[in-house]
Design a binder for these strands. Structure first.
Lengths: 264, 264
DNA sequence: CGCGTGTCAAGAGCACTGCTCACATTGCGG
DNA sequence: CCGCAATGTGAGCAGTGCTCTTGACACGCG
């Protein structure tokens, strides 16, 4: 078996030999071409042969660099996850630095997510839309997928920490709803925010996870509706409707957004 | 040009001639076969040749009954919209008949939608997932698509009528957010519920539309997340999480669900 | 009743897809 | 400098949507 593994992570610091250099370059070109095709044709229409034609090589040559069409899609999926993640993380970080209220930061994160989705609708579909039936997400995708979750959880945790969280929904025992390892992780993140009593730290962390799930669901649903035309001929100012929807849903969680206030 | 039009609406009351009868039967079989294939393979994998094989006919024969693969998909899309619509409408009607609080009816409608989506995940993807890139929804799909919206709007209108709506989110001028014809329609529906002042009847109707949009977004997002695996290894009891999410989001709109109370 | 008409199924064919494989070429490293 | 690994090529297989010609059948009118 050759030691060059298709789909190897792009961690190679510096390609030493010209061959490795060429390989890295071609892989980058390949990804760029695929990205372009997905951008304006969608993932379903992505054809390896077409990408090969774009690059001016035989279709079979592509298989030297990528295991299969699905593997190529996986790379693009990771890219999309990462793009969404950085967009949300940056917005959250901006809010944190500006000392904005968590509720306003939430709106900023939501807007960042929406902006990303609007700019790369097929990327959004790739990761949050209908999955390809036979396709099972490899393990490489779970960490990038976590990042948006993380940004949302951070906002909720901040609101819990500064006491601005005033939930309007039902109070439920959230502890048993969250998978143990996620709960442990969340409790670790929000450790400083937990009540020093310590007994209900886990419950508090679980509440944060459930809260971010509600936020994420509202976000995903609102963007899906807008992107997939379910708001067409119903709403006029979709950006404003989005803000209202995010503020309204967040109010249930306990984040009270001021739509006239500053958004970082 | 022959007067038999593929994709003609199934309005023909009774097939008179044996020919028409056979045609209707075959069309029904065709739809059933396609539905089955979509159900367990997904829309993307739907192959006209495959359903032709299932029916034991040549692939070309199918084109006598259906214009194209997309046209066949459109028929299935309408079916899916209708299935979701009836599920939600029935739940809403059940709640109304039982005299349940609008908030509880909302939960019932949401559960009905989720149950439909779980039972026919590919049907859900067909209508609420990533649209096929080249595909533009024909006009036939808009009326079925409206039905879920309608059920949600009815619940919100009922809550506005009986005064149980206590919004927790920001109060916004919703009137300019809604397309005029939708606004007119909504005002017509909730006419009895509007304040007799009449001046802000439109604003009230607009608020109802925006409210149902928020509910729909939360619903769509929650089901998407569950169905597409974004809750995998995060949440344990997805049904309960769904209830909590729906109750929480609805609280922002002003519907205060009791998760321990009766759900029609 | 017979025959034209039109509806129908079949099959070949085109252009495309993902993917594999034998072969030729190229260039790196021992 | 030579051998071998990495690379690119093109043919080929099995599948797809869709079109068009061909032949068979049944309906209904005269």
């Amino acid at each position: 078996m050759p030691d060059t593994d298709p789909n190897r992570p792009p961690d190679a610091v510096a390609p030493r030999t010209p061959r490795e250099r060429a390989r890295a370059e071609f892989t980058a070109d390949l990804l760029a071409a695929a990205r372009a095709r997905v951008r304006d044709e969608g993932a379903a229409q992505l054809s390896l042969r077409a990408v090969a034609r774009d690059l001016g090589v035989a279709s079979s040559a592509v298989y030297r660099y990528v295991d299969s069409r699905d593997a190529l899609l996986t790379l693009l999926i990771i890219e999309a996850y990462d793009a969404a993640g950085t967009a949300c993380e940056e917005a959250a970080e901006r809010g944190r630095r500006a000392g904005a209220a968590p509720a306003q930061t939430w709106l900023a994160v939501a807007r960042a997510f929406r902006a990303w989705a609007l700019a790369d609708r097929h990327g959004f579909g790739l990761v949050y839309g209908t999955p390809v039936p036979g396709y099972l997400a490899p393990q490489d995708t779970v960490r990038p997928a976590t990042r948006v979750w993380g940004a949302l959880g951070g906002v909720v945790a901040a609101a819990m920490a500064d006491g601005s969280l005033r939930p309007g929904g039902p109070d439920v025992a959230a502890r048993d709803l969250v998978e143990p390892q996620v709960l442990e992780f969340a409790a670790g993140i929000g450790a400083g925010a937990a009540a020093p009593g310590g007994s209900d730290a886990l419950e508090s962390a679980a509440g944060g996870v459930v809260g971010s799930e509600v936020l994420f669901a509202a976000l995903l649903g609102a963007v899906s509706m807008e992107l997939y035309g379910h708001l067409h001929n119903v709403m006029t100012d979709t950006a404003r409707v989005f803000d209202v929807a995010m503020a309204t849903a967040a109010a249930g969680v306990g984040l009270h957004v001021s739509l006239d206030g500053p958004v970082p």
